[in-house]
């Protein structure tokens, strides 16, 4: 740091306000979220800058590949593979060719848990990628990518129905909220699917898993930034018509109902919780009389702290 490079200083001081100067820091992930967003706005305006950003990002990857490989523990792979079934996948960005009319059938009759998932329309099967977003950067889930995803989820319902179908298929299980809302409520299903995908795509997504009292795997996925969470449970036993599973946010003020759901007894059930999650809340599930209770009347079958 003693051998200060004079020419560097001269150019540096003369160009602090030129957005193009952020190209290097951007590729190295050395910008704050705000700065990166600013640079991405600049990228949207400049083809030249987009090319530079892609090249410098590739250069950064070359640096990354120069790090000595490290063999992960075998436990890591095992744990990861076990999580796949309860980790919903995002549907492709370009609209699937599948018409929305097909989706109620799909959500009414979910595939068996082991059903082949390859039946889901893939991006490559879709017709011309009309909906391809103008994400300016090859980097995955940069904030530009995240914005593109959010934009996608703000799109009109027609597409979201298809998304709901895709998510339900990917999860390979039941759409939990459906049964208690009487007729299949497409709009509710859409909102649920969109919210779940949004949580999974959030920059601060976290998850915690535990087992229910009966030993089923339960996972809570949440984003503090969005104030949203979703619970995903495998093979949750079906309840009689007179009972529902009820969700609770349990914070300092005691339990607050976050909606009810049902399960077919096999496959994966999931439900995005109603209301707003506060960091540190515990999410609990109880069995309640059909329609839910004002306060929990039974011990929770599972409780997970966010």
């Amino acid at each position: 740091m003693t051998d200060r490079d004079q020419s560097d200083n001269v150019t540096g001081n003369g160009s602090t306000d030129n957005p193009a100067d952020l190209a290097g820091a951007y590729a190295l992930h050395a910008l704050s979220a705000e700065e990166a967003a600013e640079y991405e706005r600049y990228l949207e305006r400049s083809e030249q800058a987009r090319i530079e950003a892609a090249e410098l990002s590739d250069t950064a990857v070359a640096l990354g590949l120069s790090a000595a490989p490290v063999q992960p523990s075998s436990a890591l792979k095992a744990s990861l593979m076990a999580k796949l079934a309860s980790t919903p996948q995002l549907p492709p960005l370009s609209a699937p060719a599948q018409p929305a009319a097909d989706s109620p059938a799909v959500t009414d009759a979910p595939p068996a848990p082991g059903a082949p998932l390859t039946a889901v329309p893939k991006a490559s099967d879709a017709t011309a990628p009309t909906a391809a977003p103008a994400a300016p950067n090859a980097a995955p889930r940069t904030s530009a990518g995240e914005r593109a995803q959010r934009r996608w989820f703000q799109r009109p319902a027609g597409y979201l129905v298809a998304a709901a179908a895709a998510v339900a298929l990917f999860v390979g299980g039941t759409f939990a909220g459906q049964a208690i809302y009487g007729n299949p409520n497409d709009q509710f299903a859409d909102q649920q699917a969109a919210s779940l995908a949004e949580i999974n795509a959030a920059p601060d997504t976290q998850r915690a898993s535990t087992e229910t009292a009966d030993g089923q795997e339960a996972t809570l996925v949440w984003s503090g930034e969005l104030g949203l969470s979703a619970i995903i449970v495998d093979d949750l036993p079906a309840l009689g018509d007179d009972q529902d599973y009820q969700l609770w946010y349990i914070g300092e003020g005691g339990p607050i109902s976050a909606g009810t759901f049902d399960s077919t007894g096999s496959g994966t059930s999931w439900r995005v919780l109603d209301g707003t999650m506060t960091a540190g809340d515990t999410v609990g599930v109880t069995v309640e009389p059909a329609g839910g209770s004002d306060q929990p009347t039974t011990d929770p079958i599972v409780a997970i702290q966010s």
């Binding site: 150019t11 602090t16 190209a23 820091a25 992930h29 640096l63």
Partner: peptide, 30 residues
């Protein structure tokens, strides 16, 4: 920035050089 995870502002602070200089170095370097 790449291996130690410093933001460009932290690099500037750490090396006691103006932020603009860091930006230029990162870009020219890459």
């Amino acid at each position: 920035s790449y291996f130690s995870g410093y933001s460009h502002r932290e690099v500037a602070e750490f090396l006691h050089i103006p932020l603009g200089t860091v930006k230029t170095r990162l870009r020219d370097g890459l």
